[in-house]
Computed example of a mutant assay.
Amino acid sequence: MTPVLGKRHNRYLKRVSAVLKVWDRLSLPGHRSLADYFWARLVRRLEQEDEPLFRIVKLPEPAQAVSGAEPEKDAWEDLKLRTYIASRCENHVYYEACLERYDPALKFLRQGADGHATFFGSGHGESTLNCYRKILSGTAGGPVMFEKVYSTQFDDVFRIEWLESNFGELLRSRGVLLPEILSLNHGARAVAVYSRFMAAGRIPQKEAVSRAVAIIRVLMDVSSVPSIPEYQDYQSQHIYCQALASARALVTRLRPEANAVLDRITGQVAETPQRYLTHGDLHYKNMLGNGAVLDWDSCGFYPFGYDLGLALSKSLPVSGGESLVAEIQRHFDLDALGNRAQLQMCSLFFCFLFYSRKSSLKLEDGVIIDIFDHLVTVHQRVANDHS
Rank of each mutant, 00 (worst) to 15 (best):
F354W: 13
Y95D: 07
R189C: 01
L171Y: 02
E90C: 07
G320E: 14
V4S: 11
Q329E: 14
I216R: 03
I371G: 08
A113C: 01
W296R: 03
P52S: 04
T152Q: 15
D370I: 12
P317K: 04
K58C: 15
L316V: 07
L79M: 13
Y95M: 12
Y276D: 01
P52D: 03
E77D: 08
G187T: 00
A190P: 00
I328A: 06
S298V: 01
R217K: 12
K134G: 01
S227L: 08
G121F: 13
S87H: 08
A292I: 05
P256R: 11
E147F: 01
A35T: 01
P143R: 10
N91D: 10
P71D: 01
L171N: 05
I265V: 15
K362M: 10
R110I: 02
R8I: 05
V251E: 09
S173Y: 01
L294N: 05
D24I: 02
A97L: 09
N130M: 02
R41C: 07
V269P: 11
V367S: 07
R45A: 14
N286H: 15
F332G: 03
D295C: 09
A40Q: 13
Q237G: 00
V22A: 03
Q64Y: 04
T278N: 02
C89R: 08
P62M: 07
A40T: 10
S360D: 10
L163V: 12
R275K: 14
T377Q: 13
R133G: 00
Q232G: 12
Q48G: 12
Q237S: 05
V209F: 03
E51R: 14
V66S: 06
L46I: 07
W296H: 03
P179I: 02
F304G: 01
I160V: 12
A326V: 14
G201I: 14
E77L: 12
Q380M: 10
R330F: 09
A247S: 12
P71L: 04
G300P: 05
S315W: 05
R189L: 04
I368P: 02
W76Q: 06
L53K: 09
L334K: 06
K358Q: 13
G6Q: 06
Y284L: 08
E70F: 14
S67D: 15
D155S: 13
C241F: 15
V93I: 09
V4D: 09
S151V: 05
G201N: 11
D155I: 00
V367M: 08
G321T: 05
L288C: 04
A270N: 07
Q268C: 12
V269T: 14
N91S: 06
Q344D: 04
L353W: 01
D114I: 06
N339M: 04
S323K: 05
P317W: 07
R264N: 14
